[in-house]
Write a protein that binds this DNA or RNA. Structure first.
Length: 325
DNA sequence: CGTTGAACCTGTTTGC
DNA sequence: TGCAAACAGGTTCAAC
């Protein structure tokens, strides 16, 4: 659910709600989506949340040194951060500590005002990592430009002259940080560019048109607190409103808002992609080979249901992502 | 360089 | 009604 506008919305709500609070203790549920679970338990207690920022689809909780000792600055470890990615179904919400926990609640941080900052994520596609200043800096290097701030030249440089499809480039976090499937399709529709066009096929003028479309859409979506398609709720439990303004996403078969032609869906860059076949000219060679309806079809991903049955409450404790020592 | 498909995991919707 | 497939806002990795 969370792309840039949704993450921005959550970050703003969180900023208002928890900046200045100190973390008293941490309790964990399933931890296979956490880089180093033990690090959370070891380093979070005692730290104060100094700021909440967004970086692409990540949220960054900036943490103080332990026990309020400011001016430690000696080893650079004094300032560290909690990196949070919501994946597809992640939610992070402050609740009163006494309230019953939602299902799939995997991280609870008790705060010094009696509330608990809770992270819930049914699919656990999210990610949480405790990072020192140096490790965070290294991590952030992997991502591309902020789509809201990228200049005309930067954008064109990153798109034109690439042989990948434009949809793939928009979704590539190394190119732009924060764009996901909904806003990629919406901006391509607005700029009248087919998702399967190659970056190299766009003129710099077209690239700029796409950049402006993307920025306008993201800004409006932020104002409307994001898109709530099924269950997205911000840090205050409010749904967004931008889904009412979607022009193509999820509108297969319905008339294009510009020309009434039925919106089509195809798989581009491995994702469902919605577009108007009339407004968004398909590139030559874009056969209808990527028709939906038969994507992961022949896959019998059913591993003996009883096979190596694992205990009902098996708690994996190893992070699945490689560490970076 | 690029693309595709599978994998990670769970829940909901859709179709026969 | 019931069951199984399809699908979901994301990311990563192997294979080609």
């Amino acid at each position: 659910m969370p792309e840039l506008p949704e993450v921005e919305t959550v970050a703003r709500g969180l900023r208002h709600a928890i900046v200045g609070r100190r973390i008293i203790s941490v309790s964990l549920g399933k931890t296979d989506f956490i880089d180093d679970p033990a690090a959370l338990e070891q380093h979070l207690p005692g730290r104060r949340i100094e700021a909440v920022e967004r970086y692409g689809k990540f949220m960054l909780l900036r943490l103080s040194a332990v026990n309020g000792e400011t001016r430690i600055a000696v080893n650079g470890d004094a300032s560290s951060s909690l990196l949070v990615h919501l994946g597809m179904t992640g939610q992070i919400v402050p609740s009163r500590a006494g309230q019953p926990r939602e299902k799939h609640t995997h991280v609870c941080m008790l705060l010094d005002d009696g509330r608990e900052l809770r992270y819930t994520d049914a699919r656990r596609f999210g990610r949480i990592a405790y990072l020192t200043k140096a490790l965070l800096a290294a991590e952030l290097t992997k991502f591309g430009a902020d789509p809201l701030e990228v200049s005309k030249e930067q954008f064109a440089d990153r798109i034109c002259g690439r042989r990948a499809r434009i949809k793939s480039l928009l979704l590539d976090q190394r190119v732009l940080r924060g764009v996901g499937n909904i806003y990629a399709d919406e901006s391509l529709w607005k700029a009248k560019i087919h998702p399967a066009r190659l970056g190299a096929m766009l003129s710099r003028k077209q690239a700029n048109k796409l950049r402006l479309a993307l920025q306008g859409i993201l800004q409006k979506a932020i104002v409307l607190r994001g898109s709530s398609i099924s269950d997205f709720l911000d840090a205050e439990g409010q749904p967004g409103e931008y889904q009412r303004h979607h022009r193509v996403y999820g509108r297969e078969g319905k008339g294009c808002y510009r020309c009434k032609t039925p919106i089509r869906r195809a798989i581009v860059a491995g994702r469902s992609s919605y577009f108007c076949p009339r407004c968004q000219h398909s590139p030559r060679g874009f056969a209808v080979l990527s028709l939906p309806g038969k994507k992961g079809r022949k896959t019998k991903r059913r591993r003996a249901p009883t096979g190596s049955g694992r205990a009902p409450h098996d708690e994996k404790s190893q992070g699945r992502k490689g560490k970076s020592p």
